[in-house]
Design a protein around this nucleic acid. Structure first.
Length: 604
DNA sequence: TACCCGCGCCAC
DNA sequence: AAACGTGGCGCGGGTA
């Protein structure tokens, strides 16, 4: 059963069965006759409701018992969460415009849902996918489903405390019509395309639910431990605008080494000049460049940069802003990266330095299960390319060591550098030097990424295993290429065009691997979520084992200590399932390392 | 004051 | 070892 959820003009919420191939449902029963709605005009045009509306009294009334008949309810916002709770018994797939606006409110009312179709995320995929290029959805002009939702709107609703923000501009999006368009687009794909997209859209939508749940639950964060750590490294918390004592001490060392009385290292321009005046052969103030130079100022300067970075990025300010009630609650943005990876918004959730992970501490009686997919992207490339020798190398837990063992490279660090270089399109340096040997040993794997690069260099599109498709380069790119191909093109133009073409080729080269890895990770996490939900039984999300963090190829589950081993087993089972779902019987392993720890820093 | 961009560094 | 993919974010320093 698919139940579409739609906010009507005036604020009422309609739940309607939009049907599908799954078993039909028992509808809801009648309710008292609608009372006059004082807050807004009645929804014009849209069909009301056996379910009936109630005055917005602010008190949630029980939703009617289920009875025979098609579901079509119109509810007040106050009634909505309980209606969802009851309908969940039938395992519907909720069809709504945007999980990020609907689901947090349900979670706040302690209502979970199992499945959904996130129309906005699915729209983005289907509109761009080569597998649905012939659909009406793809052909339509850009509309309200193509606009990204301004995160500030969602935030404003949080601030005002309104259950649903009536000002949010959701009116133009008709989820029922959009759902039909999406179903038609999928139906028009090849049988293989249908199953790929079906899996991708389900995983993407599950990701949207997980993102909301992780924000709701939060990552356990001990602000006192964090403060102690800062004090250890930087000194006591300084007055606003002042440097902490240890940072000042390091700056004094820097000044002494440079022989200057004044220095403001936060200004790269000023710092660069000061270094050059002291005779250092530098063209920038980047750490890696400084490391190459022998001079007494280098060591304290690098220490200063490290400390300064810690303070500005994850210092006292950060804790005050982002840690509340012992939890770090970032906003995750599923599908926020072109390749399908998640992004995050606020708090730098996807770049938590290892330095501060000591402050991530499980609740008393609870532990973290931290799991990491070992060398995920090379393994994804192995499965996509069907390279048998690379599959053999990946038989163990350490693919890079396996590459050494089959004689492809001489050391593990070389294996890693060479593989990453191949997937990123490196041509120079050590990575470039190692590539020929890699190509000799694993011709199919390397050919696969080379092909993806060539497609991008022509300005054409590539797609992931499940059908997420790369964008085409912009008009300026095509313009440059066509100008460069004319006879009158100058050498400079030709060179620039080639540089741009290569650059887009590196993007598409990486897109197929990074994007498919993101799909694997979503399937992994979605499968785990389902298993954890079963494990939880009737317990609410945060009262049982639940996901609290996700970082591209790594997940963290917060769980009662007694459940930790079982959770670790579920994590591994979900990983195996993800590989089967995406690659079928391909002989490629996707091992995950699991660690049961009290603080995040203990993992890895 | 509000933006915008380059720099530099963090994560994968 | 070093410039090769995807991002977020804080800062300095510029502009409207």
């Amino acid at each position: 059963m698919h139940l579409a959820v739609h906010q009507l003009p005036g604020g009422r919420i309609r739940i309607v069965d939009v049907g599908d191939d799954e078993p039909a449902v028992r509808p809801l029963a009648g309710t008292p006759a609608p009372a006059p709605d004082v807050s807004a005009p009645a929804p014009g045009g849209s069909k009301p409701v056996p379910g009936g509306s109630k005055p917005a009294s602010g008190v949630a009334e029980p939703v009617p018992e289920l009875v025979e008949g098609p579901i079509d309810l119109t509810l007040t916002p106050a009634e909505f969460p309980d209606a969802v709770r009851r309908l969940e018994q039938h395992s519907p797939r909720w069809v709504w415009d945007d999980s990020a606006t609907w689901y947090p409110k349900l979670l706040a009312a302690r209502v979970r849902v199992s499945r959904c179709v996130d129309l906005r995320l699915c729209h983005l995929i289907l509109r761009n996918s080569v597998l649905t290029a012939a659909s009406a959805l793809a052909a339509a002009p850009s509309g309200p489903w193509d606009e990204s939702i301004d995160p500030r709107i969602a935030q404003r609703a949080e601030v005002t405390g309104a259950l649903f923000d009536l000002d949010a501009p959701t009116g133009e999006r008709d989820p029922i019509a959009e759902f039909a368009l999406q179903r038609a687009a999928i139906a028009g794909a090849t049988p293989q395309g249908r199953s790929q997209l079906g899996l991708l859209l389900a995983a993407e939508s599950a990701g949207a639910l997980i993102a909301a749940e992780m924000t709701f639950a939060g990552l356990p964060w001990d602000a006192a431990v964090h403060d102690r750590l800062l004090e250890e490294i930087l000194g006591p918390k300084p007055a606003p605008g002042m440097r902490p004592a240890l940072l000042t001490a390091v700056l004094d060392e820097v000044k002494t080494a440079l022989g200057v009385d004044e220095l403001y290292p936060e200004s790269p321009g000023e710092l660069l000049k000061a270094l050059q005046r002291a005779g250092l052969p530098v063209t920038s103030t980047r750490s890696w460049e400084l490391k190459e130079i022998e001079h007494p100022v280098i060591a304290p300067l690098l220490r200063y940069k490290k400390l300064s970075r810690l303070m500005t990025a994850n210092g006292w300010n950060w804790v005050e802003t982002w840690v509340k009630d012992g939890r770090f609650r970032p906003t995750y943005v599923p599908g926020g990266v072109v390749t399908g990876r998640w992004a995050s918004d606020g708090g730098g959730a996807l770049q938590l330095p290892h330095q501060i992970r000591r402050a991530v501490i499980a609740d008393p009686g609870w532990m973290f299960v931290v799991a990491d997919a070992a060398q995920l992207e090379p393994r994804i490339l192995t499965a996509m390319s069907g390279d048998r020798r690379m599959a053999d190398a990946g038989r163990g837990v350490d693919l890079y060591q396996g590459m050494v063992d089959v004689g492809a490279v001489d050391t593990r660090p070389h294996a890693k550098i060479a593989m990453l270089g191949a997937m990123y399109g490196a041509t120079t340096g050590e990575s470039g030097r190692l590539l020929p040997r890699l190509t000799r040993t694993f011709p199919h794997a390397i050919q696969f990424v080379e092909d993806a690069a060539r497609v991008g260099e022509r300005g054409e599109r590539v797609h992931t295993r499940l059908g997420r498709t790369s964008p085409v380069p912009g008009d300026a790119w095509h313009e440059l290429q066509s100008v460069a191909s004319t006879e009158s093109a100058t050498e400079a133009i030709t060179r620039r065009a080639r540089t741009e073409a290569r650059s887009w080729g590196r993007f598409t080269r990486n897109f197929v691997v990074q994007g498919t890895a993101a799909e694997w990770a979503l399937c992994w996490m979605a499968g785990l979520r389902t298993r954890l939900q079963t494990l939880a039984g009737d317990a609410f999300l945060t009262d049982s084992a639940h996901l609290v963090f996700f970082l591209h190829d790594e997940i963290v589950v917060h769980c009662p200590t007694a459940q930790a081993e079982e959770v670790a087993a579920l994590v591994r089972a979900s990983a195996a399932e993800a590989g089967r779902l995406i690659f079928g019987a391909a002989p490629v392993d996707f091992p995950v390392t699991t660690a049961i720890v009290r603080t995040y820093a203990e993992a890895k």
